[in-house]
Amino acid sequence: MWSGRGALRGHLVAVGLSGVVGTCREESLRSYRLFAARDPRVLLGIDPEGAWGLRDVIALMARKCGVSADPGCVSGHDVIDPERTLAALDAFAGRLAAVARRGAPVLLGTGHPHRLIGFYGALADALSAAGCAVLTPAQGRCVDITTRFGLRTHTLDYVRGVGLVRDSEVGRPGCATGAHSHSPLPVRLALAAAEEAGGPLPELVIGDHGWVCGAGQLGFEAIGLADTDDPAPFVGEAEGLLSVVVPLDDGVRSDHYLPLTRYVLNRACLSQ
């Protein structure tokens, strides 16, 4: 069992979810510079109120994640403080418990389906069992997303109740493969479709990348996961747009997230 805090801390460090992570400093600094320049590729759907210059972003990420606060540190691998990850997971579980007690509707979505579909799918299963409606609005609709290969048409789909996008020319509906995406357009489409249908609307959005940032910017409570090269969710949390952001490496093997699932569900009293 990985429900204990000490055991989970050891696991986080052993597999690189926290501690020394796979994300390199150069990659993170590039994202921080782009964020400071308000590049939409890294804003992930938020419209920051603060100035957020490069030094401000570095200082925030040091506080939230534990990365180096020294702007002169320009190489090597990032470090995430596992205690910050654990504290955020506890807060994350608290928000799950609150929405489960109300039996309120939820929306889940990920831009990392290859890595995180199992984590979010288990949350969706547990919340559904607790009486929450797991929403799947706009399933099958097309959304045009700008990628490094140009404008591509994607299809919004749900796997185990978790939203994702897939290239319209690849794959089939219902399978777990999907596209890696930072775009807020899928959650905007989903929320607009839910509203057009007369509801219900989610009381909590759970996910990462554009799913949580886009939802938070629209005024929905949102919680999620984020790596050190994605400053937008942490800025969103600092400005009150997101409720909880868990710092961790979002690119490790999918099975390495299973202990986090057990821990969060135990903390939220949602274990089945």
Rank of each mutant, 00 (worst) to 15 (best):
A93T: 03
C65L: 14
H154A: 03
L135P: 13
R55L: 14
A268I: 09
L12V: 08
W2C: 00
A194Q: 09
Y263A: 01
C175A: 09
S128Y: 09
E196A: 15
V67T: 13
V74P: 12
V165L: 11
L156Y: 10
D125M: 08
G76V: 02
R115M: 11
S181F: 07
D227C: 13
V13S: 06
G214N: 04
Q139L: 09
A192W: 07
M1P: 14
H256I: 00
Y32Q: 02
T147H: 06
H209G: 01
A98F: 02
R9I: 00
V170P: 03
S128A: 15
A36S: 15
S168K: 13
P202K: 00
C132T: 02
L44F: 13
T177C: 15
L260S: 02
G16E: 07
L248P: 11
E237W: 00
G178N: 06
H154L: 02
H112Q: 10
G216R: 00
T23H: 06
A93P: 13
R267L: 15
L34N: 03
P186E: 01
V170H: 10
A133W: 04
G103Y: 07
P113L: 03
V162W: 07
E196L: 09
L60V: 11
L86I: 08
S168C: 14
P113G: 01
L116E: 11
R101D: 09
G111A: 04
V57R: 03
A98Y: 00
G219A: 05
L204F: 04
G22E: 10
V15P: 10
V74K: 12
H182G: 10
C213R: 02
H209R: 01
D144S: 12
R95S: 00
G210Q: 04
A179Y: 08
V264A: 05
G103W: 07
P186K: 00
G171Y: 09
L204V: 02
V165G: 12
